[in-house]
């Protein structure tokens, strides 16, 4: 958890409280989201801990990308997707890993990751300063670190060759 704290310090916080329904302010919020995400990826690279890429649709309401975990020198990659909820940023986005749907109990229907009891209170205390980059660093990151090794051990997640042609 100490690691998460130090990572968190380097991710820029956001300023604008606006969701996709705030037509005027949402573009500004979206800019801040991207700025924070870009810095976050740069930090990860600098720390030799590059672990996700993300992009959005034009409106910034749908996000998709990839995240990956290394285990025994093998790279396990997963698709990420999520929508920005109507009540964002009061409520955090619900991150979905579609490939893992139904493979672990630490997930809600549809492949939504089941976040720790600490995540939501932490998010709530930091509205509107936390953004997507924080949801990834504090939500998805720790989830992957705990769940993926276990899923690999259980044989539920299998290593796939890089070029995924059958």
């Amino acid at each position: 958890m100490e690691g998460t704290k130090s990572i968190l310090k380097t991710i820029p916080l956001l300023k604008t409280k606006a969701g996709p329904r705030d037509v005027d302010l949402w573009p500004q919020r979206l800019k801040e989201e991207y700025q924070s995400l870009i810095q976050s990826v740069k930090n990860n690279k600098d720390n030799d801990n590059d672990w996700f890429r993300l992009e959005s649709n034009k409106e910034g309401t749908k996000w998709f990308g990839k995240c990956w975990v290394f285990q025994n020198q093998l790279k396990y990659e997963f698709d990420i997707e999520f929508d920005i909820p109507v009540t964002y940023p009061t409520t955090a986005p619900e991150i979905v890993l579609p490939e893992l749907d139904g493979k672990t109990a630490k997930m809600y229907r549809g492949g939504k990751i089941c976040l720790s009891d600490h995540f939501k209170p932490l998010w709530a205390r930091n509205v509107p300063k936390f953004g997507i980059s924080h949801a990834l660093a504090l939500g998805l990151g720790p989830w992957l670190a705990v769940e993926i090794p276990e899923l690999i051990v259980r044989g539920v997640v299998k290593y796939k060759e890089k070029d995924d042609d059958k």
Binding site: P12, K31, Q35, E55
Partner: peptide, 14 residues
């Protein structure tokens, strides 16, 4: 600790 103001557009950032 906050994001800095930028002149870049959303598309630039994307």
């Amino acid at each position: 600790t906050l994001v800095k103001d930028t002149d870049l557009t959303v598309d630039d950032l994307r």
